[in-house]
Amino acid sequence: MTFAAVLETLIKIGVVFFVALTAVAYLTLAERKISGWIQDRIGPNRVGPWGLLQPLADGIKFMMKEEVVPSYAHRPIYMAAPALLLISALSALAIIPFGDRLSLGGYEVRLAIADVNIGILFFLAMSSVGVYGIVLAGWSSNNKYAMLGGLRASAQMISYELGLGLSLIGVLMVSGSLRLSQIVEQQGSFSSWNVWSQPLGFLIFMVSAFAETNRLPFDLAEAETELVAGYHTEYSAIKFSMFYMAEYVNMITASALMATLFFGGWQLPFPAEAAGVEGNHLALLQILCFLIKTGFFLFVFIWVRWTLPRFRYDQLMHLGWKVLLPLALLNLIWVGIGVAWGWF
């Protein structure tokens, strides 16, 4: 690796982390604003115009609050669990291509931190490491609600990883590569977006992604009416906010993956020539396009949370194993036929 390549990667990591963490801060505001709108309320409007400074106030509050550690907690693991969860969530962002390439004074920059050969497997690996953060948070708190929440979360994540993985295979069969940039390139025109050829696969991926991120209607792990706050019951101050941040980063990753795998990633919905721009302007337009698609799915995440009630635990397991899994296999057969006959 040359010095320039290392520097380029470091800068990209910095930019992506900055954008992602800022987005996390404003997603919390968006969540409250949209929930207010859905429930015919106003939402936060005291701190700054339209409550725009609310995330800043929340951040300061999280840092200044007293941190309480339960006296019978397993201290080292209790400290490490939120960090493990947040690190794995942020790492998964590394594989997402957010644009094609930008040329800066003759130097070509590929717009993805790591466009690796194993692409999508890296995401699966990171999400399976993230399970540890939740289980350990639940166990080390030495609290029955936290323990139950941790167990529920991990059982749920392991179950829905199957549906998630199988729905991904359909995409891989069409593109013939695990590399995300190649998956995006293969969806060059509007009609070749994967969502048209495998809508069922997209639906399974979306439902599984909701379950993987522990969002309503699958937030069994922190179901406040049953478990106080689930696995993060005993956490306070900045550690609590780390769980929160990890949840939102996971939402961003899941939304970006939905856009990338099924909706053409950074590809424009019309031929690039029709945009009337080229070079760096086109690249910026493509980044904007990617952000809009990702933003839309983030909105769907929030929309669903404030619209649907929570599943019961047995319904959740039933849906995962007896509905999504067979449907995912059906989708695979469909894609297999389509590929064999050369339809897509």
Binding site: V116, N117, I118, L121, F122, L124, A125, S128, V129, V131, Y132, V135, W139, M147, L151, S154, I158
Partner: peptide, 26 residues
């Protein structure tokens, strides 16, 4: 061998050891 590395993390570190952890915790 990045593919084997990914499988190592997904299968061994991810799936199998989580089940071990479950049993020991319970």
């Amino acid at each position: 061998a990045p593919f084997i590395a990914a499988l190592q993390v997904i299968l061994y570190a991810g799936a199998i050891m989580v089940l071990f952890l479950f049993i020991i915790m319970l």
